[in-house]
Structures are given as C-alpha cells and as structure tokens.
Amino acid sequence: MQRRHLFSLAAALAAAIALPAAARDYKVGAIQIQHPWARPTSAGAQVGGGYMTLVNTGKTPDRLLDGSTPAARTFEIHEMSMAGGIMKMRRLDQGLALAPGATVALKPGGYHIMLIGLSKPLKLGEKVPATLRFEKAGEVKVEFTVEQPQAPAGGHQHGMR
C-alpha cells in the first residue's frame, strides 16, 4: 500500500515535470507578469493580439505604460468591448492602471496588447520577445508564447492553419 502511494506520487511528480515549459511568469519590482501569450495569426494578418495577467503585489499603485517588440511596428494597449453586437476597440492612452493588490487580466474579449504591423505571421509555438514598461516597476523583458486561445465555455477549439 505504502509503495503504491509512493509510486503514484512519483508518477504525479513526473507528470508535473513533463508539463511543457511553454509559458512562464516574470517579475519586476512588485509586478508579476503571468503567462504572456499571443494568438497565432493568419498569413496576411498585419495585427496580432497579446495577453497576460498582471498582479500588483505591492502597496502602491502602478501602471503598464507601454512596451515594444521587434516583431511589430507598434505596441499598443487596447480595451475591447462588445455591446449590442458591435465590437469596439480603444487604445488606453494612459496605459493600464494596476491598483495595489490588484490582478488585471489581459484576455480575449477585454484588455489586450495590440501588435500592429507584424514583421511576419505569429506561428504556433514561437516566442515573441517584448519589453514591458511600468510606471514604477520599470522595464522588464518577457516572451509571449504563441498558442491557441482556450475554447470558450460551450464553444469549440479554434485552429489556425
């Protein structure tokens, strides 16, 4: 019995270690950057969407001001909204506010990084280097892993050929 438990434990550990080290987390100052990822893009696409979760573990407000990447001409922080079947996108001119203790998700349907003027399509599995600039925490280099969006509840998996 004891041995069986040990075996299960070993198997679980092996499984945990074998998980793809695709997306990683970063930290700069009090800001955690979790799982930066980007959508794969189609052949003629000039724009891409980047996503991540930002956590302000500090006691003072901070702000994601902007960023840059060699993969695109322009790096903008956008907010998308849907109302009455109409999609709207707005650039956040003041950046994205991160209150003390706040977790802010950049995810499909909401805040996102808009990469405009891609130098080439973003292919599944690639890593897109970028620099994020925070008002207080300063700059940090991260990599956006290109991966498929998770299927929405009740939806189906999307595939980009």
Partner: peptide, 17 residues
C-alpha cells in the same frame, strides 16, 4: 477587417468549422 486581432479571425475560423 483584416487588421482585427480577435473578432474577425474568430468568426472566420468559426465559419470554417
């Protein structure tokens, strides 16, 4: 439009499926 990061590629993929 093709400069659309999310809605349009999603709709095109959905239509394909």
């Amino acid at each position: 439009f093709t400069y659309c990061p999310e809605i349009c590629p999603t709709t095109l993929l959905d239509m394909g499926a």
